[in-house]
């Protein structure tokens, strides 16, 4: 069994009596790409916010490389990079300044931050637009900046919360390429999406989430094999079978 890099144990979170996350348990092995697949409102973002120390769980525990996020949030933070679902950047600054700023805050000196900013922008295919204000960028380019920021400090574990929502195919391919490249270099990834083809294509294992719970968790092929011929079924069929509803509702 590979080393467990992240352990989420029985996580709960309610907002005004509404159980957004209701007993979620899973683990991610080092260098794995793990997918959380579920419709809007399933509780994917809330889960990521708890894993990334932004939100305290009502109950349950998260450990990242052995560090409990409750007791050692700083050690845990030093290992993670977060690419939030909503853009989290300064539109009035250039792409360069955005990456630099967060690079400095994750602890790099200005020389290191500069070198990494340039290489991340190049990886995102944005090197020629480095000095332009982000407000002038297309939606897809902004998402690439968003991801570029998450990679500052070379985190060991990357949380990607629906990074491809509403973007052009070019940006989407760039993001996929990047994720696969990073995995080659040893990064561990948690990827959430409500697009089943994406989960299918990228993820080693997938947890299907609905109503704050994980309803199934395995490799894509094993999930499909459970309900029929894995070469003829889709994750969509799996979801329908498990919940009685379509993923796209």
């Amino acid at each position: 069994m590979a080393e467990l890099f992240l352990v989420a144990d029985d996580l709960h979170k309610s907002f005004n009596d509404h159980k957004a996350v209701n007993g979620v348990t899973f683990t991610i092995a080092r260098n794995e790409i793990f997918g959380l697949l579920g419709p809007n409102g399933a509780g994917k973002t809330t889960t990521i916010r708890m894993l990334s120390t932004v939100l305290d769980p009502d109950a349950g525990e998260v450990k990242i490389s052995g560090f409990s996020t409750r007791e050692h949030p700083n050690e845990a933070r030093a290992l993670i990079g977060v690419c939030p679902q909503e853009l989290a950047l300064y539109e009035d600054l250039s792409a360069f300044d955005n990456l630099m700023f967060f690079g400095r805050l994750v602890g790099m000196n200005s020389r290191e931050a500069k070198a990494q900013t340039m290489s991340n922008l190049a990886m995102m295919g944005l090197e020629t637009r480095a000095k332009d204000k982000v407000s002038k960028f297309s939606g897809g380019m902004k998402r690439r900046v968003n991801l570029g920021i998450a990679l500052m400090g070379q985190p060991k574990l990357l949380f990607l919360d629906e990074p491809t929502v509403g973007i052009d195919p070019q940006s989407r391919n760039k993001i996929f390429e990047t994720i696969q490249g990073l995995r080659q270099k040893g990064m561990t990834v948690l990827y959430t999406t409500h697009y089943m083809e994406e989960a299918d294509r990228l993820c080693d294992r997938i947890a299907i989430m609905d109503g704050g719970k994980i309803v199934a968790m395995d490799t894509s092929r094993a999930l499909k094999a459970n309900i029929g011929d894995p070469d003829k079924t889709t994750l969509e069929d799996v979801f329908l079978k498990l919940t009685g509803r379509s993923l796209r509702d």
Partner: peptide
Amino acid sequence: KGTLERLLT
């Protein structure tokens, strides 16, 4: 801007 949570990580 969505940056608060990012700052907190």
